[in-house]
Simulated assay, not measured.
Amino acid sequence: MALTIPQGGVGIGLRAPHFQDLLRDPINTDFLEIHSENYFNPHSEASAVLDRLAQQYAISCHGIGLSLGSVDPINPLHLKQLSNLIERVKPRLISEHLSWSSVGGEYFNDLLPMPYTEQALQLFGNKVDQVQQTLGRQILVENPSVYLTFKQPEMTEWQFLNRLVEQTQCGLLLDLNNIYVSSFNQGCDSHTYLAGINPQAVQEIHLAGFTVKSFDQGELLIDTHGSRVSEPVWQLYRQFIAQWPNVATLIEWDTDIPSLDVLLQEQGKAEQIRSQEVAA
């Protein structure tokens, strides 16, 4: 029987350097989130670890390879492997990105930005419908980190996501670090973005760290997931969680991965902020 994520639960991302620690000593966390593609092979060592951990912790599957924004059709093998993984570990949440990463069957190691147009919305919505029908489950779509914008967008990113929810009945994974990074890089207000998103569609929040790159023209924030959550992102978290405290929260750390204790410290800070806002 699959374990559940409690309302307002806070979890951490499952990464290979922590496999043995988690197998040896259980930790106090509400769920573990995996990168789905790392566990497609059911006979791999990683999958063997996941199968054991899924008996102790609720699981969330976070995908990076469906390329839902591409004009290419969805890779049927990829979708089948995702379906098999979901059947095996029975995750509580399933998510993907508002992005594309393939053209003409060639895949890139990047989550590339979407043009926010009616045509792109229809394309992306059709892909989301296909995935949800195949899996028999709702999926969440995550807002990306953006470093450039298309000319003459027909809507804002949050309007695109809100329309996508209306069109497909999908949910949203709101990455607050991505909001801050994208807003800083584009000279926008991250609080305006947060105020514009449909909060009732948000089922999960991601919190992560970024890297600052300095150039002659100024600074650029890079969504590296390689450091502690920044104070501006914690402020966004306070703003959102004060009104919507029952959303699940995930501490995401993908590069320069620290000891498990550091992730649990960040988890503890998220739990403390949520408790303070609920009490207030």
Score class of each variant (00 low, 15 high):
168 T>G: 02
263 L>A: 03
74 I>Q: 09
67 S>H: 03
247 V>I: 14
257 I>W: 01
143 N>K: 01
213 K>H: 14
266 E>F: 00
36 S>L: 00
105 G>H: 01
192 T>A: 11
275 S>Q: 15
147 Y>A: 01
272 Q>T: 13
123 L>M: 08
158 W>C: 12
159 Q>E: 15
244 W>A: 07
214 S>N: 05
37 E>W: 09
20 Q>R: 14
73 P>D: 15
122 Q>K: 12
184 F>K: 09
131 V>S: 14
3 L>K: 14
219 E>N: 14
177 N>E: 07
17 P>T: 07
20 Q>L: 15
38 N>W: 12
17 P>V: 06
24 R>I: 10
19 F>I: 13
77 L>D: 13
185 N>I: 05
24 R>A: 15
255 T>I: 12
66 L>A: 08
67 S>N: 12
120 A>Q: 14
47 S>I: 02
49 V>F: 08
74 I>V: 15
167 Q>Y: 10
58 A>N: 03
207 L>S: 04
52 R>A: 10
55 Q>K: 13
99 S>T: 07
57 Y>N: 01
236 L>Q: 08
276 Q>C: 06
17 P>L: 09
242 A>L: 06
135 L>N: 05
269 K>N: 12
22 L>E: 03
107 Y>S: 07
31 F>N: 06
168 T>D: 00
182 S>M: 03
206 H>Q: 06
3 L>M: 02
85 L>I: 05
46 A>H: 14
236 L>S: 00
69 G>D: 06
151 K>F: 03
69 G>R: 12
56 Q>L: 09
108 F>R: 10
8 G>H: 07
211 T>R: 13
3 L>Q: 13
16 A>E: 14
211 T>L: 05
148 L>Q: 10
135 L>C: 14
113 P>R: 11
7 Q>I: 04
37 E>G: 03
59 I>V: 14
214 S>F: 04
40 F>M: 02
25 D>F: 04
68 L>F: 00
169 Q>M: 01
99 S>H: 01
37 E>T: 10
28 N>L: 09
130 Q>F: 05
210 F>Y: 15
229 V>T: 09
161 L>C: 08
112 L>P: 02
277 E>A: 09
92 R>W: 04
14 L>H: 06
252 E>L: 01
277 E>T: 15
260 L>Y: 00
215 F>Q: 12
57 Y>S: 06
185 N>A: 02
40 F>W: 11
189 D>R: 05
44 S>V: 05
32 L>C: 06
246 N>T: 15
8 G>R: 07
